[in-house]
Simulated scan of single mutants.
Amino acid sequence: MNKAEIKEKLSDFFHIAFEKELIDDIAEVGVFKKIKENELLIDINDKFDKIPLLINGAIKISREDKHGEEIVLYFLERGDTCTVSFGSCLGTMKSQVRGIAEKDSEVIFIPVNKLEEWMVKYKTWRTFIFDSYNIRINEMFEAIDTLAFMKMEDRIFKYLTDKVKIMRNTELNITHQDIASDLHTSRVVVSRLLKHLENEGKIKLHRNKIDILDF
């Protein structure tokens, strides 16, 4: 993809958030990449030399414990960036999270040296980075609260409705094992609670697919 095409994609979404000069700069140095569903964007212990800016799609960000078990922290949507990768970008630490495409996505990668340069040069970029930090921190607090205070049935339903928002589709192609893995629980527990949610009229179960009715 050439610079003019990158600029067009940026302008479609960021024309209000970013000034024209910043969009021009991103188009000048940015590298466009398509990421297929289930493709890895960033892995644990990776060191990034580029900042990802999500143009389309959705990325699942998860954390892994010492036993290799994962739990989902949050999702990146169109217009988001993975702020937890900034420490890795700046060479201070390795990535502590894994990012996998929930669906086909489009990302523009920005060279890490532009992170600090544009923080000084562009107020809109500085605001964007600070806002991104705040959003991600709040989402991680929400994930902690969900783990600490919500019953598993409520966690599953919240997970499903969050997925609907991310995928922009009330029909989710997902297995019981997928849900169990993301929520760090067993497939048997998930299957039992999904059946209870179906009996309550909140969802409709199919083979490897769930329709969310109460949304």
Rank of each mutant, 00 (worst) to 15 (best):
E200S: 08
L194S: 06
D49M: 07
E139Y: 04
E69A: 15
T175Q: 11
S186G: 03
T161V: 13
R168E: 14
I26S: 13
I16M: 13
L76Q: 00
L53V: 04
M140W: 02
S186R: 02
A58Q: 05
S181L: 13
L41N: 00
N38D: 14
T146I: 13
V112F: 11
I129M: 06
L193D: 01
T161W: 03
P52C: 00
E106Y: 00
M150F: 10
H67A: 11
Y74L: 12
K209S: 08
D145Y: 06
E8W: 02
E106M: 06
M167D: 08
K195E: 15
L22C: 05
Y74E: 10
D211W: 08
I55Q: 10
D182F: 03
M93W: 01
L40M: 10
F18W: 14
T161H: 09
L10D: 03
A17L: 12
R136Q: 15
L197G: 02
W125C: 06
G57W: 02
D211S: 14
A101P: 03
R168F: 03
D12S: 13
K163M: 15
I179L: 01
H206K: 14
L41V: 03
K121R: 07
K9Q: 14
I26L: 15
P52Y: 00
V189L: 11
L160E: 04
K103H: 09
K33H: 03
N38K: 13
K60S: 14
N199F: 07
R78W: 09
K7Q: 07
Q96T: 14
R187T: 06
V189A: 14
G68R: 00
S191T: 12
K3M: 04
Y133W: 05
T127L: 14
L73E: 12
M167E: 09
D162C: 01
M140E: 11
D214R: 07
L40K: 11
M1I: 06
